[in-house]
Design a protein around this nucleic acid. Structure first.
Lengths: 215, 215
DNA sequence: AAGCCAATTCTTGTATACAAGAGCGTTGAC
DNA sequence: GTCAACGCTCTTGTATACAAGAATTGGCTT
């Protein structure tokens, strides 16, 4: 009945949306009761989530919603930068004409949404822009890895979009990336994409630092 | 009793060493009988292996030793190149003095083993060299990702070491990498390491191509 | 009164029993 | 003789029962 898969998605949703918060204990029995299944599929779902890093399993102590330290997050942004840079470099060499068109349309959508001042809509347009680059690199494994890490960093990426100026800068960076890919300039595409991500990490660091000072 | 973990390691060993071959069916009952445990920890181990990509789970059809297509392997070498490049770039900026010394000793060990014509010993010396670079980047997540992919590519990397000239070239490349890291030249370290890996992918492609022609 | 030890309880980890779907073989009909 | 359909078996997926370790609480000692 493939229940475990559905459970995995449900729990993932709860974690990403913040319904379950970092550090929360994930008791097998309670979850089993809540979803009206036995502990077996619950355990499967938890292990799958652990493999993606959303959940932390402590031996004989149970499962907890993973809480990334500041350092953990910065480290992941660094890796994300490397992966996206590689995607960009490969995309610049390998992108197909239809994909290039899609990329430019996605960029235009970002510009449109940014002017509407709708943070959520802009976020999704931005997400689509990046996903197209992942696909365009013609390396399914790389695309999958990039997408997985992208998803993992989702809650942290949203934080730093709140700064108004960041959106404007982000759009300018996107334009440069689109241009580099269209020109087939893989070195420039890689460098721009990598910086685009690293800047996000730095902005996040600023945000957290200011938060810490306020507290 | 944490049996699942031990089972995972045992199966992983069997797969990496070739005792279990790509495409082999992993029957839960047989494995349970062989390891004298119930199916439950076997299933846990299989799912963990699936998350690392060593095993492929087909719904309601069971587990199989994952067989990577030629394309899959090339894709993974591309990603490995990006990750190792990043490790090198960060290591050049962040490596500590003791780590630098360890790296140079590891390189010397490679040179020594290469002259002995002992393929296995060289392989392990080479592995240690790369692991030191992973650790030296001071990014635990990146190091973990690199190590995991490195392990996954192990069987394929060994293939291309058979060409004698490859070992000599590999040593020369290592020397360049050591120098770049010592000099703190992150761009050069990144480029050299990336090429070092991409060359392996290409040599492997040559090897497979020649194998296909012979067949 | 405070701290430590022990016992009980609660939770995870494993075994076994049961359900359901997929594959395969056999048999019957054309 | 061949093809198709039905049923059986074998395997996975889920539920439940049992074992073992961890935490907490209560009592005892200092």
């Amino acid at each position: 009945m493939r229940r475990a898969q559905a459970l995995r998605d449900a729990l993932e949703q709860d974690i990403v949306t913040g319904k379950l918060r970092p550090g929360d204990r994930l008791d097998e029995q309670s979850l089993a009761a809540r979803f009206e299944v036995s502990r077996t599929p619950i355990r499967e779902a938890l292990m799958q989530l652990a493999s993606t890093g959303l959940v932390e399993l402590q031996a004989r102590r149970g499962a907890f919603v993973a809480s990334l330290s500041f350092r953990d997050v910065v480290e992941r942004f660094e890796v994300m930068a490397a992966l996206e840079g590689m995607c960009g470099a490969l995309a610049a060499r390998r992108i197909t004409e239809p994909m290039q068109n899609e990329l430019e349309k996605a960029h235009e959508a970002c510009v449109r949404e940014a002017s509407q001042e709708n943070a959520d809509a802009y976020y999704y347009a931005n997400e689509r822009f990046h996903h197209i680059i992942y696909e365009a690199c013609q390396n399914a494994f790389l695309a999958e890895q990039a997408q997985q890490l992208h998803a993992r960093l989702k809650p942290y990426r949203r934080l730093q979009l709140r700064a108004r100026s960041r959106v404007a800068n982000s759009l300018a960076e996107h334009q440069g990336i689109v241009d580099a890919i269209r020109a087939g300039d893989s070195d420039r595409a890689e460098r721009l994409l990598r910086e685009h991500i690293l800047i996000q990490g730095e902005r996040l660091a600023d945000f957290i630092a200011s938060f810490d000072r306020a507290a």
